[in-house]
Amino acid sequence: MRNTHPKSVKKEDVIRIIKEYSEKKGAIIILDEDVFLKDTDNWYSWDPKNKILNLNTEVIINEGYKKDLFEIIRNFFDSNVGFKDLSIRPTVKSYEEYYDQSPDKELLNFFKSNIPFDDWMALKMSLFLRFQDKKGKPIAYLKEDITSKYGTRGANIANLCTIDFFEDEFKPLFNQLEVPKFKEYYEHVVGERAKVLFVSSKHDLEALTDAFLKTLNKCKTHGIRSFKMYARASQNISVLKKFVALLDAKKDENFTQDILFEEFSVVKVLEDSEIPTVAFEVKLTKYIK
């Protein structure tokens, strides 16, 4: 149940109401929240359960209190209260929770001085994305932010992160290889996407064949002996399984491009119906070092 105020607005009421509710422990002030604006043409409402003070700035300003409103806003700011976009509130809260738990602190510390700084930042963002994904929270916008800031390389890091590649492949390899060798391998995977092929909604059979052959050729050129093909979500899984079935059939007429079937073998290495996800490993029988 919300308390609302009748339409006439007195200046002293504006100042008093805002001051009174802003001083309550845990109080939140929202300026012009959509739902509040649609529900009423009052200048404020107080939700005691959630401790939210909704303000309608248009009414306050139309009543002639723009200057007072600005003074109130600046006073809050001078008292160290910042202002945030309401739409990022869930993400801020989620990241605060994640940061408190720090489940990936060790991994981040491990890679901090071992990979380029921008990659490390992309990794940090990607680990949070993975955390959110495991909790069933929306992640498309996070992936978009990563790609927007760090391009295809960032997107690739996010994909690798999702399949625990940094823990399961890069970390052990860093401990096994000389640093220059590790860096070369790292660059192949992250920079050139040689080791992993992710099937996405943009892949139909023809696009997947194209991506497969490109990945195969990169591996052959760099002496990489295998790569994995991953698909998540039922549509992508369906496309990948269909593609692998065609590879297994080894019939030229099923493909518009030449495929040398004897150069590789394909084995399923993962199928998880819960996520859902499936992965196949492509082992090269011929490659150039």
Binding site: S22, E23, K24, K25, G26, A27, I28, I29, I30, L31, D32, E33, D34, L37, T57, I61, L69, I73, F76, S79, N80, V81, G82, F83, K84, D85, L86, S87, R89
Partner: peptide, 17 residues
């Protein structure tokens, strides 16, 4: 001043801030 206070703006009120 309440140190826990949070203030949020929306697309509509961003220009006001």
């Amino acid at each position: 001043m309440n140190n826990d206070l949070e203030i949020y703006f929306t697309k509509k009120s961003a220009p006001i801030i």
